[in-house]
Write a protein that binds this DNA or RNA. Structure first.
Lengths: 165, 165
DNA sequence: TAATCCTACGTTATAAAGTAACAATAGAAC
DNA sequence: GTTCTATTGTTACTTTATAACGTAGGATTA
């Protein structure tokens, strides 16, 4: 991602989420909202167990089903994407766009960026049609290096070696 | 897959594997060959732990690292694909093809079919180039129904409910 | 031929990811 | 206010995957 005021991203994402949910009569409960907020803390792929650890404040510990259920809700409503090749999650930039995006996954900094391309979807549809296959869901993920991580030795932007316990 | 003599698929896949490995000085050991053979038993996605169970003959039990190492070898040499969205594996139809295929995953019968399309890859490359992203690996998976599984209620071809213990 | 080296495989233990099943609770609807 | 349903809590477990170290066997060479 280019340098940006990320607070805007968060605000925009949460506002969109509120809007979409209320429009659908879905409840963006405090827990679900909190999970979404954690996912949007940056543009990196987030693991379910990282969320569990983050939500487990000093006192009451959050259990896996709690987080997985919130993730299921957010996925159902298109507010986040699941990244299959990383077993991780990321906020969706365009929760109302109608087709599955291509996710660009930077192996170096962990950032995820999404892009949509009608021509690409058309080709996939055509490939499917050719063999009589009916598509229900597309997983399109590209691993590699984002524009900021092209120079192999620049450490400024690299992901920290590990999370704190 | 259309009806076919699957023994041909197996023979062809194993012969190709032998050829590729010897050409590269890689050792297709009995264990690795056996894993490849199990994966090719049909065109369905195979789980690592299914392989572990299958290889664990009545007597000496096969442990996870054994199978995972064989899978790593087969993946490295392009003899199988990992299906990210299923945590599963499938034999590669064209071990020497140079770019990542699109995998069509039938949700009903479990069959996997692969297809390649240069125009598709060109679009992905172009999308990446636009944002300065360098692609290292592509995950392209389509879930849905294969041509044989279009009719919702035909049970002939459905996957059996569970594996035997 | 024995020493050695390297690669593959075996073994134990554990980490990481995800779910089933049921209990408790809080909101909405009546 | 009571009933009903959706949401969250809790316990236990399954599935998927890897780390770390030990062993065996074939090739290489001193």
């Amino acid at each position: 991602m280019t340098a940006h005021d990320h607070a805007n991203c968060i605000d925009r994402a949460l506002a969109e989420a509120e809007r979409i949910c209320s429009q659908r009569g879905a409840r963006l409960t405090p827990l679900r909202r909190q999970v979404l907020e954690e996912i949007w803390r940056n543009h990196e792929a987030v693991k379910a167990y990282d969320l569990i650890h983050r939500l487990s404040g000093s006192e009451h510990t959050t259990k896996p089903p709690t987080v997985y259920r919130a993730l299921d809700f957010l996925l159902e409503h298109g507010l986040i994407h699941r990244i299959e090749s990383l077993n991780a999650y990321v906020g969706c930039d365009h929760p109302e766009a109608h087709h599955d995006p291509v996710l660009f996954l930077c192996e170096r900094c962990g950032d995820v960026r999404e892009a949509r391309h009608a021509g690409l979807i058309a080709i996939l549809d055509e490939m499917a049609a050719t063999q009589g296959f009916t598509i229900a869901h597309r997983t399109l993920e590209l691993r590699g290096r984002c524009t900021r991580c092209q120079s192999p030795d620049d450490k400024d932007h690299a992901r920290p070696p590990a999370d704190l316990p």
